[in-house]
Amino acid sequence: MTDLVKLSGPMLTPTSGPEKSLVVLLHGYGSDGRDLIALGQFWRDSFPDTMFVAPNAPHVCGGNPFGYEWFPLDLERDRTLSRLTGAETAHPIIDGFLADLWAQTGLGPADTILVGFSQGAMMALYTGLRLAEPLKGIVAFSGLIVAPEKLGAEIASKPPVLLIHGDMDDVVPVMGSEAALPKLIDLGVDAGLHISQGSGHTIAQDGLDAATAFLRKAI
């Protein structure tokens, strides 16, 4: 078996003592863990028993050598097929990272929320819905379901999911989350959608507030 890439990135330990829950933050294409760990800094005081971890994706970004990518944007190939190939490749790497994190902390899927933005949101959904044991929850900012036609046969657990998207997103259009919602509900997932009006490919304040409420309910 080929050794998997080991992920690393910034981490915030709980302010109250030993961690009782985990929030794993998956950044977008061309970014890095330092970007999304800002969410952990925002949430840290509200969730003092939670550890926040924001790993860098496994590959230097082809479009930005100062950032990372979960998978390349292959503009020469069909975008849907390219995303599926990329997600299938990145999935076991994230699986391995989570397994190591759980072994180190003594926690597990039921103590963990996956949060992703853009390409990271795609990977949060792809990975989190295929884990044998359900996560505490998944928050997907500006994402979509990769290969939704395959999900019915491959879904292994059904954690609650919150989709958050800006209606003016011109990078990953809002239809990605709008299409994901009924698919998840049809599969029996407790899923919700928050649309930030007038917002582009970013995390708007009302979207952040919706995610905070989701975490508060889950944690």
Score class of each variant (00 low, 15 high):
3 D>E: 14
3 D>A: 15
7 L>C: 09
7 L>S: 04
8 S>E: 14
8 S>Q: 15
12 L>C: 08
13 T>L: 15
16 S>N: 11
18 P>Q: 08
19 E>Y: 03
20 K>M: 08
23 V>N: 05
25 L>H: 09
26 L>G: 01
27 H>T: 12
29 Y>M: 01
30 G>I: 07
30 G>M: 07
32 D>V: 04
33 G>K: 03
33 G>E: 02
33 G>N: 05
34 R>V: 02
38 A>S: 14
40 G>C: 10
42 F>P: 02
43 W>M: 05
43 W>K: 04
43 W>A: 01
45 D>R: 15
48 P>F: 04
54 A>G: 06
59 H>C: 07
64 N>F: 12
69 E>F: 05
69 E>C: 07
71 F>S: 01
72 P>L: 14
73 L>P: 02
73 L>Q: 03
75 L>F: 15
76 E>W: 08
79 R>A: 13
84 L>N: 04
85 T>A: 15
86 G>A: 10
87 A>P: 07
88 E>I: 05
89 T>H: 13
89 T>W: 13
90 A>I: 11
92 P>Q: 09
93 I>W: 00
95 D>N: 14
101 L>C: 07
102 W>T: 06
115 V>D: 00
116 G>Y: 00
117 F>K: 07
118 S>E: 02
118 S>G: 06
121 A>K: 05
123 M>Q: 08
123 M>F: 07
124 A>T: 06
126 Y>A: 03
128 G>I: 13
129 L>Q: 01
131 L>F: 02
132 A>K: 14
135 L>T: 06
139 V>A: 07
141 F>C: 05
143 G>Q: 06
144 L>T: 07
145 I>W: 05
151 L>G: 06
156 A>E: 10
156 A>P: 02
156 A>I: 07
159 P>V: 04
159 P>K: 09
161 V>F: 09
163 L>S: 01
167 D>I: 08
175 M>F: 12
175 M>I: 13
178 E>V: 14
180 A>F: 02
182 P>N: 12
183 K>D: 04
183 K>G: 00
187 L>V: 12
187 L>S: 05
187 L>N: 06
189 V>F: 02
192 G>I: 10
193 L>R: 10
195 I>P: 03
198 G>C: 12
202 T>N: 13
205 Q>P: 09
210 A>C: 11
211 A>D: 00
213 A>R: 14
215 L>Y: 03
217 K>L: 14
218 A>T: 13
